[in-house]
Design a binder for these strands. Structure first.
Lengths: 342, 342
DNA sequence: TTGTAAGCGTTATCAC
DNA sequence: GTGATAACGCTTACAA
C-alpha cells in the first residue's frame, strides 16, 4: 500500500516537485503542455495529492465540525445530509458528533472537534446556557461558529433559525378556528429555546383570541413519543381531556395519539391533534397528522454557506437568517370534512 | 488564533521537542517528573498536539470511512451512532457518506474516502455487483474494508450480517401459524441481497408448510412507504387482496397499512401485516406493527471492532459474523387475542 | 533519560 | 516558467 508521492512523479518526469504541485493547483503559472503531461502521467502512476500533507502545509484542516443533539429523528439526519452535500462539494469533510441532548457531552464534542482543528463549527445546541457562553467566547477568539436552530434570536452570533413563535401561533390559531374550546399544549423541555418559543406562539394565539385561562394549559412533555404518552396518561387519570392538543413535535404527537386511541378516544372527533417539525410518518399514521413543516434542507444549507463565508473572511458581520415554514393541515386536527377546509 | 506548538513548549521548558513528544506518547521512557512537568506546563500554555502533523508523520489518518445507502431511516442512523461511539473513543474520526441507494454515488464516495486516506472502510453497499468486485480488489491490495449488512454471506471478506433468511422464515411462519391462507410478500428491490434473502426465507416457509403456489405471491415493492402504497393500490385494483402480508421492512408495511385502511380494509381483521427491521414507529401506529428486530447497535459495533482489528493487523483471516434478531409480535398480525398468543 | 536530526508530502518564497 | 529549499508540527531512529 505504498502511496505514490509528488516526488515520484517529479523524478519520473525530470521536473521539480514545485512544478508538479503547480500542475495540481491552478493558481500558479505553468506551461499548458507541462501541466497536461504532468496530470496525465500522474493519473497513470496513480498519484493523488496527500490531503494530510496539504492540510499541514496550508495550516487548515478542511474539516467542518457539526454538533447536533441527536440524529435518530429525521430532522437532524436531513440537516447532516444537506450539510454534507453542500460542504463536500467544496472540498470539506464533515465531522458529525451528537450530544444525546446532554450538555456536558455537547461541550466535550465541541472541544474534541476544536482540538481536531476543524476549520469551523456548526452547532445545534441542546438545553443549557453555560455552553453558549463558552461558544461565544470562542467566536470572540476568532473561531468560526454558526448556530443552527436551537438558539435564541437575541444571541449575538451568526445563525439560521426557524420562526417558531410565528408558526406555533399559526398552528394554535388553526385549532382555535376549528372552534375547539379547550386547547392544551404539550411542550418540550422548558429550558430549550425552541420549546419556549413554541410556548410563546401558543400563548400569543390564546391572548389574541381571548381564550380564558381555564380553557388552556401548557404541560411540559419533552421531545419523545414516550413523553407524549405519559402526559396523556396523566390527563386521562385526572379526567382532564381537552378538545385539542398542540404538540411540540410529531413524535410527542404520535405518542399522544397512540395513548388516546388505546383509551377509546377518537382523533380528531374527541381530541384533535397537531404536531410540529413535520416527519414523513405524519402522512402514514391514522389519522394523518397535521403539522408544521420546516425547510430543514434549506436551513442547513444556508448555515453551511454562512459558515464557509465566515471561514473565508472572519471580519464579516454576524448574520441571522430566520426561516418560515408551512402549515400542513391533515385529518388529525379537523372535525368536519377536510376537503372543505382546503 | 495562533496555535501553541510542541516547539513553544520545548523552548519554554528548555528541553527538546522529542522530550515533549515523549511526554505525550506513553510508549517511550521518560522520567516521571519530566513528564509531569511537561504535561502541566503544556496544559497551562494551552498546547494540544496538532493531529494533522501527527497523521502526516505517522502516515495514517486515524480516519475511518463509512459508506451507507442512506440515513434518513433509523437503521443507519443507529449504525452511525454505534460506530461513532466505539471508534471515536479509540482516537478515530468517522467520515460518513451516503450513497442515496445509487451505485455510482457509492463508488464515488468510496473513492473519495480512499483518496482522503481513511485508514479503513466500512461499507453497507447498495444494489449492484460491480462495486463489490472493485471493493474486493481493494481488499486484495491490502485496504482494510469490512462490510456491514447488505452483502451476501458468500462474499470472501470480513463482514457483519443479519440472518435474513432465518428471520424472514420465522416472520412468515408466524403468519402461516395464524391460519392465514393467502399470504403475499412485498419484497425489496430484487437486486438487493437482503431482499433476496428475505424472499428466500419466505419461500422456505411456504415450502415447509406446503402452501400451494396459488396461495402465495412475491411482489417487488421497494424500501419506501410510497412503494408499499403503490403495490396495495394495484392489488386493490385487481381485487387481489391476500389474508396476510409480510413486508420487506417497516416503511413498506406502514405504506401498505395506510393504503389498506384508506380503502376500508381492517388490519389485521381483513389483512394481517408484518414488517421487518423494526422501527420505533412500530409501536406507535394503529394497530401496532409486528416486526423483526435487528441488533443494529451490536452489529455496527462488531463491524467497527472487526475493522480496527484489520487495520492493526491486515494478516488476520476474514471473519464473518452473522447475527440473529427477535420476532416482535404485535396486533397487526394477530387476528385473535394478542395476549393469548404471548 | 534526553537530545539531534531526518523524515512524513505538501505548499510557497525565493531565485534564475 | 521552472527549480531549490524552507516551512508546516509532529514522530522516531540514533547518538550521547
Amino acid at each position: 500500500m505504498k502511496h505514490v508521492t509528488i516526488k515520484d512523479v517529479a523524478k519520473y518526469l525530470n521536473v521539480s516537485v514545485s512544478t508538479v504541485s503547480r500542475a495540481f493547483n491552478d493558481k500558479y503559472d505553468i506551461r499548458k503542455e507541462t501541466k497536461e503531461l504532468i496530470l496525465k502521467t500522474a493519473e497513470e502512476m496513480g498519484y493523488h495529492p496527500n490531503p494530510i500533507a496539504k492540510k499541514l502545509s496550508q495550516n487548515r484542516s478542511l474539516n467542518i465540525g457539526v454538533v447536533v443533539p441527536e440524529f435518530i429523528n429525521e430532522y437532524y439526519s436531513e440537516v447532516i445530509i444537506a450539510l454534507q452535500e453542500s460542504l463536500v462539494s467544496k472540498g470539506y469533510q464533515v465531522l458529525v458528533m451528537q450530544s444525546d441532548e446532554n450538555e456536558k457531552q455537547e461541550l466535550k464534542n465541541v472541544k474534541t472537534l476544536i482540538y481536531d482543528m476543524v476549520d469551523g463549527l456548526l452547532i445545534a445546541p441542546t438545553i443549557g446556557h453555560e455552553n453558549i457562553s463558552y461558544y461565544l467566547k470562542r467566536i470572540n477568539d476568532g473561531y468560526p461558529i454558526v448556530f443552527l436552530n436551537r438558539v435564541d434570536e437575541s444571541i449575538p452570533a451568526s445563525k439560521v433559525i426557524f420562526n417558531n413563535i410565528k408558526w406555533s401561533f399559526f398552528a394554535t390559531e388553526h385549532l382555535i378556528r376549528q372552534k375547539y374550546e379547550k386547547i392544551y399544549h404539550l411542550s418540550g423541555y422548558r429550558d430549550l429555546c425552541v420549546s419556549k418559543e413554541r410556548i410563546e406562539g401558543f400563548k400569543k394565539a390564546m391572548n389574541k383570541h381571548k381564550i380564558s385561562k381555564e380553557n388552556y394549559k401548557i404541560i411540559e412533555a419533552g421531545l419523545l413519543a414516550k413523553e407524549g404518552k405519559e402526559v396523556i396518561e396523566d390527563l386521562i387519570f385526572h379526567h382532564d381531556i381537552p378538545d385539542a392538543i398542540f404538540c411540540v413535535n410529531d413524535m410527542v404527537a404520535f405518542g399522544a395519539i397512540k395513548k388516546l386511541k388505546d383509551n377509546g378516544y377518537r382523533v380528531p372527533e374527541d381530541v384533535a391533534i397537531i404536531g410540529f417539525t413535520e416527519t414523513r410518518m405524519a402522512e402514514l399514521v391514522t389519522p394523518q397528522l397535521s403539522s408544521v413543516k420546516q425547510p430543514t434542507y434549506e436551513m442547513a444549507k444556508a448555515a453551511g454557506e454562512l459558515l464557509l463565508k465566515k471561514i473565508n473572511n472572519n471580519e464579516i458581520p454576524d448574520e441571522t437568517i430566520i426561516m418560515n415554514g408551512e402549515l400542513n393541515i391533515r385529518k388529525s386536527s379537523v372535525k368536519g370534512n377536510l376537503t372543505e377546509l382546503l
